[in-house]
Structure formats: structure tokens, C-alpha cells
Design a protein around this nucleic acid. Structure first.
Length: 470
RNA sequence: GGCGACAUAGCCAAGUGGUAAGGCAGAGGACUGCAAAUCCUUUACCCCCGGUUCGAAUCCGGGUGUCGCCUCCA
């Protein structure tokens, strides 16, 4: 097993070696549940799910944790605007996230902790940092003292001095140093608060991830992932808190997923160009969205537009067609013994494709390369379907099995797209066949048109009529 | 200002030393009653200028351009 992955911490691609193979401890920074997730969020979650699936495909046992941030400034502000409690807001958007994720074929993680469910662990972690002199009280808040943690800035390759120069100092700050960040915030009127040894209050943003990941996965994770914008300060701060408290490496690998822009612009509330998954799924197929995401490398920034999605849709259709056609071929395939040695589809061809698929994916999850392999194989298989008849059941099944196998990882093809043959449609098709036999093209074409209007597309193959949803 | 990423055909996109995968769109052809699907053929001065090398899209230096982070944005 030689998967290579790019580690943000070392800025290089290295062979992946988890601490205790075959187990992989994988933590993903999940959504702040103050709104519906947008297409950019979706990219992160789709990619992380893909990484998990691929690691499992390669024999690892992945223990995956993805949190919900259900208490922070944005949550409080939003709840205030909607005039509901923070926990009501959280419940609503957690449920919404689950629906969206399921629609996008994102498998649920093994654990989905909420920050508010880990207050005791957070308090104990802060206590440890205070005891070690890495944190200090400022007013009723508790801050992490970045000056006491020399490696600060290592993950994001930032120099402390430079960071200091660029840092903004708010008036009325209770920090000693502009880079210090809040571990615990003193209670403010009307805001949720919990008891702690240093008064009522709530956790800062960064501490929750450290507390939850270490509690569920242990002091050292194998992989920690999130969007690139989390590198600094969020992940830098997590490293400081966690390694400061335990003295052990926090995560062996850091994976950061590139940004998704909308018409070359960052999505933002102020520009009013936020595209939610919910909105997109009304008009688009989830497989098309997934295929779009996976057609570029996860680290490169990608642009999103209706036109690009349409382009992706047509490409994906090629693979979908292939699988549909194979399903159709299976209906007439013979069970003749022994494979035709001269067949363009030999088991060697499939093994070769699998090898190249794995090689691409092993190389830092090169999904674009992996998909290309599927296209190349598709051409060979189409050639077989075109030239060899009757089809041999064993060959058709082998190919289908292969696509099913890789699709367990990528999930870009719908294997349940064939539908029940409706009585009425069956009759219309039979009537059309009758007309065609008589050479009555006008009637045949009219029936085809009528079915097309109803979304049924007919294809006259040399081996019988096929129909599918348009 | 600091840190970092990226620049490959009309479009999307792989490719880290040996004269450029794959997809979309386009053109031509085959198949078809016509379609659809499919197959075949076809489309690249790899941003610019230097350097290293027998040889560079790929390494090094410089430039230009786009973008991200440094503001609790995925």
C-alpha cells in the first residue's frame, strides 16, 4: 500500500503511513450550522468522503470524525436575527446538512460530535493549558499565549514577527499579544453559557476541534482535513492548543481542499452569489455535481458555472450510457462457456485499467487521472458492444463489476437508472415497431416524438429497441 | 508588506527530465429509414525571457498575469 499524499505541514507529497495501520484516524472540520451549505462547502465534504472511501478501498480501516460547530459568533448572530435560540438554529441546520449530504452521496462519518456536547472536555483541555502556562486569563476570557509556543506559525509557514506586523489590534482587547486567541469567552447577556472553573462563558472557536478530535481519536490523528482557508488561523491554532497540551504531534498529515469560485469570484454573502446545494439539487443531478467536483484535482482552485456544470454533465453521460448499455446487453447476453480469446475485452484489459485507476488515486487522489482511465476503458467496451454479438454474459458482467467497484469510490454513475417498463410505454413501443416493420416512418416518428415529449428517449439498436429517461 | 498557490488546445483538465492522458464543443467519415447511442479521423509555438542538461511543459533565476491566506469565510 503506497498512497502518496500532499501534506500542508511539510509542503510536499509523501508516502502515507498512519500511526497504527491499518487504522486511520481521520478528522474533518465540519460545517458551522448557521445556514444551508453551499457548493463550496460541498466540495470539501465530497472530497473528504472520497478520501475516506479510497482509503477503505485500499484496505485501511478508517475512523472518521466530522464535527458540527454549533456555538460561535455566527451562530449567535444568526439566532438573534431569526429570533430563535442557538440550539434551535443548530437543530434545523444540522438536519438540513444531513439531507444535503445524503443527497450528494456523502456517507455519514463514524462520529459527528457537536461542540456543545464536549464542554467538559473543552474545559479540561483549557485547564491543562493554563496549568502549563500556555494560557492566561484576560478579563473573564482565557487566551492562548502564542509567545509561549515557539513552533507557532509552522503549519502555515508564517513567521511570528510577520504575523505580528500584519495583525490587527482591536481596541479594548484583553490579549497580551495580537496573535493570541480566545480559548474561552466570558458570558455576555443573552448568549448561551456554561459553568466553568473561571466563570460562566462559552468556548472559543478553535478549541472545540482539538477537544473533540483528541477525545474521539486520541492525541495524534493520522489525517486532519478542511478547506484551505482554515490553514490559518484555525488549524494553526489547533496545533498550538493540542501540541501545547499533550507535547505530542497533533496530526501526521494535513489535507486542504482548494477553493471553489463562482464565475471567478469568491462566494460571499455580500456579493450575493452564494449557491446552496439545496438550490442546485432542484435542477441538477447529484452525480453531475460529484463528477464536476472530481474532474479536477482536489487541491486546485476550481471555477463553477452553469456552463461548466453542463460540460461535466455531458462527459459523465458517456459513462452513464456505457453502464446503461451494459445493463441492456446483459438482457440478451448468452451464457456460452469460455471467453472469446480475441475479444477486445479481456480480463487483462480490466486488470490494466484497475492498475491505472489505483496508480492515479494513489498519487494524492488524482481523480482526474482516475476518471480518464474509465473513459479509455469505455471506448474499448463500446467497441466490444458494437462489434461482438451475441454478447457473452461473463464479459459483460466482468465489465459491470469493474465499474461498480470503482464507482464504490467515486460514486459518479447511477447503477439504478433503469426503470420499470411501464405498460403504456411498452404498448407504444410495440406499436412503433409494428409501424417500422411496415416502413410507416411517419407513424413511427410520431410515436417517438410523443414519447420524447414525455421524457422517454428511444434508441434503435441492432439488437432491439432501448428506452431511457431523457 | 509577509506567506502561499496557479498559468497546458475554443472550453474543462491530467502530466515533475525523454518531443503532450482524458472529457466537452467543432469539422469530416462509418453505422441508422431518419434519429439517438457508438466507433474512426482531425484540432497544442505547454504565459514570456534567460540558465542547467545530450534532452525541459516538467529543474533553477527573472518577469508578467490570476487567485488565496494574513479579518472566528469551506
Amino acid at each position: 500500500m503506497t498512497i502518496k499524499l500532499y501534506n500542508t505541514a511539510t509542503r510536499s507529497k509523501k508516502i502515507f503511513r498512519p500511526l497504527h495501520p491499518p487504522e486511520v484516524k481521520f478528522y474533518v472540520c465540519g460545517p458551522t450550522v448557521y445556514d444551508y451549505i453551499h457548493i463550496g462547502n460541498a466540495r470539501v465534504f465530497i472530497v473528504c468522503d472520497l478520501i475516506r472511501r479510497y482509503l477503505e478501498y485500499r484496505g485501511y480501516r478508517v475512523k472518521m470524525v466530522q464535527n458540527y460547530t454549533d456555538i460561535d459568533d455566527k451562530m449567535i448572530r444568526r439566532a438573534g436575527e431569526e429570533n430563535i435560540s442557538v440550539s434551535e438554529l443548530a437543530e434545523h441546520y444540522i438536519a438540513a446538512y444531513r439531507q444535503d449530504a445524503e443527497a450528494l452521496k456523502i456517507r455519514p462519518p463514524d462520529y459527528s460530535p457537536r461542540a456543545t456536547g464536549y464542554i467538559p472536555q473543552i474545559i479540561s483541555l483549557i485547564g491543562k493549558l493554563l496549568a502549563k502556562g500556555l494560557a492566561y486569563p484576560g478579563g473573564g476570557d482565557i487566551y492562548f499565549d502564542t509567545s509561549r509556543f515557539p513552533p507557532y506559525g509552522k503549519l502555515s509557514s508564517q513567521d511570528r514577527e510577520e504575523l505580528m506586523a500584519g495583525a490587527r489590534v482591536e481596541p479594548g482587547e484583553k490579549k497580551k499579544n495580537p496573535l493570541d486567541f480566545a480559548l474561552w469567552k466570558e458570558e455576555k447577556p443573552g448568549e448561551p453559557a456554561w459553568e466553568s472553573p473561571w466563570g460562566r462563558g462559552r468556548p472559543g472557536w478553535h478549541i472545540e476541534c482539538s477537544a473533540m478530535s483528541m477525545h474521539l481519536l486520541g492525541d495524534t490523528l493520522d489525517i486532519h482535513a478542511g478547506g484551505t482557508d482554515l490553514i490559518f488561523p484555525h488549524h494553526e491554532n489547533e496545533v498550538a492548543q493540542s501540541e501545547g497540551a499533550t507535547g505530542k504531534p497533533f496530526s501526521r498529515y494535513w489535507i486542504h481542499i482548494g477553493y471553489l469560485n463562482l464565475d471567478h469570484q469568491k462566494m460571499s454573502k455580500s456579493l450575493g452569489n452564494v449557491l446552496t446545494v439545496r438550490h442546485l439539487l432542484k435542477r441538477h443531478n447529484p452525480y453531475d455535481l460529484r463528477f464536476f467536483m472530481l474532474s479536477a484535482h482536489y487541491r486546485s482552485p476550481v471555477n463553477f458555472s452553469e456552463m461548466l456544470l453542463e460540460q461535466a454533465r455531458r462527459g459523465r453521460l458517456r459513462l452513464q450510457e456505457l453502464v446503461d448499455n451494459l445493463g441492456h446487453a446483459l438482457q440478451t447476453a448468452s451464457t456460452a462457456m469460455g471467453k472469446d480469446k480475441k475479444s477486445p475485452v479481456s480480463s487483462g484489459l480490466l486488470d490494466g485499467a484497475r492498475e491505472r485507476f489505483v496508480a492515479a488515486m494513489d498519487d494524492d487522489f488524482n481523480t482526474a487521472g482516475a476518471v480518464a482511465v474509465l473513459f479509455e476503458l469505455a471506448r474499448e467496451v463500446n467497441l466490444y458492444l458494437k462489434q461482438e454479438y451475441p454478447y457473452q454474459r461473463e464479459i459483460v458482467e466482468d465489465v459491470l463489476r469493474f465499474y461498480r467497484e470503482v464507482n464504490d469510490v467515486l460514486d459518479i454513475i447511477d447503477f439504478n437508472s433503469s426503470l420499470e417498463m411501464d405498460q403504456e410505454i411498452r404498448r407504444a413501443i410495440a406499436a412503433r415497431e409494428e409501424a417500422r416493420k411496415k416502413g410507416d416512418w411517419a407513424v413511427a416518428d410520431r410515436i417517438r416524438e410523443e414519447l420524447l415529449d414525455r421524457g422517454i428517449l428511444l434508441e434503435d439498436t441492432p439488437h432491439g429497441v432501448r428506452w431511457k429517461r431523457k
